[in-house]
Design a protein around this nucleic acid. Structure first.
Length: 882
RNA sequence: GGGAGCAUAGCUCAGCUGGUUCAGAGCAUCUGCCUUACAAGCAGAGGGUCCGCGGUUCGAACCCGUGUGCUCCCACCA
């Protein structure tokens, strides 16, 4: 079969994904293996996957596929979130287009439309997850408004209410006038905005004097119920006890004093509007001020405002300013930059508002959740970035406003009578029972009506790791016992409070167990100029288009290679290109070995043990083992992009550029079968390690390498890290070791003079054997060194301990290009390098203070990793010998 | 206002317990190659006061102090 010039992902990807699904590889059932559980952070059902999701999903799939190949029973639960405000807004907009006003239809009808909408658009994200190659168990797909899930949320609400951890009360909350609902503190985003500070003159009652206040919000003056100054402010001391007239509406309000006032800000006088500012509200409570709410829930002015009734708040601001100017009460306006709160969901400017809402008491939940992290039961990665943030939030947590004035969501299970008495119960009949137990028989002509509000989306999301396994509705079931807690949570750092902290609370509260031992935070995906991805900037690429252009593997590669844990990622298509090129490199390596496979040496001649190919295999075997250990370590530290870089270089540089070039048969020569077989198994093993990162291309190549049949699939193969190296080869891996032994204690022990030390040098025997000159160099440079000879196996020359080093061979250039004059040059360079090295060593030893003070006694200058230098020397020497 | 993190090549970042892996990688750039797996490639090259200043040390990209500049989180002075 003729293979194409380039790797072509399109057909391959759909073929293999369908194949994997058909074989149920991703469906998990409890069995005897250890589980590896991941629950997807459910994307909003309204949405499409953006690059942030792509990163998260890729990381999760890498972990899940790797775990599956490591022998775990991997279970990745997909799903989506009903996202109450965002979705409701979309449905309302959709209805509006159809000419339907939400307020004109019933709740039931609206929900019908909403579910219809969800059925239609809610699967887009699932298609995208599939295109990306995610190995999720589709049978376990969960939606936060599924019937069981709905029940779970209600059950938890009732339970917490019974524990007195949920209460209803009037508080100042953040109000979203566009969505007409309360918001939690976390749902408000602050942004710097250029505003205007207005200086307004308030007349002092029964006096010609004026007092000037500064405000950004002149439209709220109709809600003023006091003016406040600092008690020690000399500017106003003569006015204490007077009353002040609020302009335009001519209301008389007291002049109060409070230490809270900053005398230096503005004029030092503050208008107090308890209904529309949190600080004013607190002042109002302290000084028992009246509260006049001058806004309706949609942000228009209410009856209480007396003027401009029904006008939008921003329109009213202009009008009020105009009126004040006309009346000569506007002293000045100055530009002022301030931070305004915006609704995370509707992007409207939020309004502080007093209203009756439901709250969760957070303190009792926060204490164990904090402890779980501080004690190390839950590890946050990267810790240095998020641990302090997590701690601070939990230590200062405020009660959680969970009611939303919406229809799309779990309806609050509270029932009220006509007088406002209420009970909380899981359904209406239970509510009636509870009511009668509590309040006696329901009055004739009265009936219980359910609370109109629904619960915050996060009040359902926090149950996710439990309820995806029916842990709330069916406690203690087999799935839950097997899969809970999840193995790791991978999510964006932006929802650490919304979701992560609350899941930990819920896990501990309802399941009495942490929901996951590790949390891996991915950073924000930005464009390559560092800007946030947003629709308005047009810098948010379409995932499916990217997959069409580069292939899913390349997208995964490109986003992963650039994503250090917890760091923001600057998205650049160049990374995807690199991924595509890498996939192509794999493809071309396949083409090469297939050519070899068709030109095998069938003569049965045994290969010489001195054949360069033998050394090459030994070398690569060892190199690969090193890399495996390295990759395992990196995964352990959640340094996934590092792991990918490591494998990338292993394949491209070590396997393709070095190994394959070295074993490549000469022109018109046949391939040795033994080397060929080993090469194929190296290649397969490489594919195994790369598969979690780029599943499609590796699966395809795996099958083409040995003409495997479908069913013998890479994604279900075992990925094993050898624990022990071949010892003789291990020495090769260690390359050059040098021990410099100094220090007072040791010297005394060894009866050495101050100027003496012991050097142990372990170098390749080729260097020693061939290059007497090098040995001379060493001796000359280290003339202060006492002879200490322990091994004796190789030389009688004292002073330096030389241990025979296993020989190995390495190609440093493709054989046909070998140029002996160049090699000699190289060799001289390397010798010079050694000389310089030894010189610096000698300098150290002649430094009396170094020898005196150096601690610890043994300084190990071990070179830990492969160094081209030694490899090249060995290769050079071998070549020269030959 | 409080807290956290970061500053290393043009860009994105590695660099562990201070010492030859010590100044690295990938991308980008430049030069030369359509060489029989791969131009989505190969061979090579250039490029850095490791943010400034001080300190500790025999020795600092690394530890301490300080200044500067970025980023994020929290709190929200009208």
């Amino acid at each position: 079969m003729e293979l194409s010039k380039h790797y072509e992902p399109a057909g391959t990807e759909s073929k293999w994904y369908a194949h994997w699904l058909a074989n149920h590889y991703f469906n998990s059932f409890p069995d005897g293996r250890p589980p590896f559980t991941v629950v997807i952070p459910p994307p909003n059902v309204t949405g499409v996957l953006h690059m942030g999701h792509t990163l998260n999903e890729t990381v999760q799939d890498i972990l899940v596929r790797r775990a599956r190949m490591k022998g775990f029973n991997a279970c990745w639960v997909p799903g989506s979130d009903h996202a109450s405000i965002a979705t409701e807004a979309r449905v309302v907009a959709m209805l509006k287009e159809k000419g339907i006003d939400k307020n004109s239809i019933s709740r039931e009808k609206f929900l019908e439309y909403a579910f219809e909408w969800k059925e239609k658009y809610g699967t887009i994200i699932y298609d995208q997850i599939a295109r990306l190659g995610c190995s999720v168990d589709w049978n376990r797909t969960t939606f936060t408004m599924d019937e069981h899930y709905y029940k779970a949320v209600i059950k938890v609400f009732v339970e917490l209410f019974k524990k007195k951890m949920i209460y209803r009360g009037a508080r100042m909350i953040h109000w979203d006038p566009a969505a007409r609902t309360a918001l939690s503190d976390e749902e408000v985003e602050y942004r710097e905005v250029e505003g205007t500070l207005y200086y307004i003159r308030y007349q002092v009652e029964d006096s010609p004097e004026f007092i000037t206040i500064a405000t950004q919000r002149p439209e709220t003056i109709m809600g003023d119920t006091a003016v406040c100054v600092h008690p020690d402010d000399p500017k106003y001391i003569h006015l204490l006890g007077k009353r002040i007239i609020v302009p335009l509406i001519h209301r008389s309000v007291p002049l109060i004093t409070d230490e809270y006032i900053d005398m230096s800000f503005g004029t030092g006088a503050l208008k107090v509007t308890p209904a529309h500012d949190i600080n004013d509200y607190n002042l109002g409570l302290k000084h028992s001020l009246a509260v006049i709410d001058t806004l309706n829930e949609d942000g228009t002015l209410s009856q209480a405002a007396e003027i401009f009734i029904g006008m939008d708040r921003f329109e009213a601001r202009k009008k009020v300013v105009e009126k004040l100017r006309e009346a000569g009460l506007l002293l000045k306006e100055e530009p002022y930059s301030t931070r305004l709160g915006f609704s995370q969901r509707s992007h409207a400017v939020v309004e502080p508002r007093i209203s009756t809402q439901w709250f969760v008491k957070m303190k009792p939940l926060a204490v164990p959740a904090l402890d779980a992290v501080l004690s190390g039961n839950i590890r946050i990665h990267p810790a240095e970035k998020f641990l302090a943030t997590y701690k601070y939030w939990l230590e200062n947590v405020k009660d959680w406003c969970i009611s939303r004035q919406l229809w799309w969501g779990q309806r609050i299970p509270a029932w009220y009578d006509a007088k406002g008495n209420f009970v909380v119960a899981e359904n209406e009949s239970l509510a009636l029972e509870a009511y009668q137990d509590h309040y006696g028989l329901l009055a004739v002509h009265d009936e219980l009506t359910q609370d109109e509000d629904v619960l915050d989306t996060w009040f359902s999301s926090w149950l996710w790791p439990i309820e995806v396994f029916r842990g709330i509705t069916n406690p203690g079931n087999a799935d839950l016992r097997y899969y809970y807690p999840a193995s790791v949570l991978v999510t964006g750092q932006d929802i650490i409070f919304f979701w992560v902290a609350r899941m930990i609370m819920a896990g501990l509260e309802f399941q009495h167990q942490i929901p996951f031992p590790d949390v891996y935070f991915t950073g924000m995906v930005r464009d390559k100029q560092g800007r946030k991805m947003s629709k308005s900037l047009g810098n948010s690429p379409d995932l499916l288009q990217l997959i069409d252009k580069y292939g899913a593997d390349a997208v995964r590669f490109g986003i992963m290679i650039a994503a250090p844990a917890g760091n923001d990622l600057l998205f650049d298509e160049a990374g995807l290109e690199q991924g595509r090129n890498f996939n192509n490199k794999l493809w071309n390596a396949l083409k090469l070995v297939r050519i070899w496979g068709s030109r095998l040496d069938q003569s049965g001649n045994k290969i010489s043990e001195q054949d360069p190919g033998i050394f090459a295999m030994e070398w690569f075997d060892n190199r690969f083992s090193q890399a495996k250990t390295e990759v395992d370590r990196l995964f352990g530290e959640f340094k996934i992009s590092e792991a990918l870089k490591s494998l990338y270089s292993l394949f491209w540089d070590d396997f393709c550029s070095w190994y394959l070039e070295w074993v490549k048969p000469g022109f018109e020569q046949l391939m040795n079968p033994r080397i060929y077989d080993k090469t194929i198994s190296f290649f397969e093993d490489l594919l195994l390690w790369l598969h979690p990162f780029t599943p499609f291309v590796t699966e395809e190549i795996y099958h083409l390498l040995r003409e495997r049949k479908p069913g013998d699939d890479l994604c279900m193969k075992q990925l094993v890290t050898e624990i022990s190296y071949n010892q003789s080869v291990l020495d090769v891996g260690e390359k050059l070791r040098l021990f410099l032994t100094v220090g007072r204690e040791f010297r005394q022990q060894q009866q050495l003079k101050n100027s003496e030390a012991i050097i142990s040098l372990i170098i390749p025997k080729e260097i020693f054997g061939e290059g007497k000159s090098l040995y001379e160099v060493i001796r000359k440079q280290l003339n202060c060194t006492k002879i200490e000879f322990k091994d004796g196996s190789y030389t009688n020359e004292p002073g330096i301990q030389v241990v025979p080093f296993h020989s190995y061979q390495i190609g440093f250039e493709s054989p046909k290009k070998r140029d002996d004059s160049k090699i000699k040059e190289e060799l001289e360079k390397e010798l010079a390098y050694f000389q310089g090295f030894l010189e610096s060593l000698n300098k150290k030893l002649s430094n009396e203070r170094f020898v005196q003070n150096a601690k610890p006694d043994v300084i190990d200058l071990e070179r830990k990793k492969k160094s081209d230098t030694e490899e090249k020397i060995a290769a050079i020497l071998r070549t020269l010998k030959a």
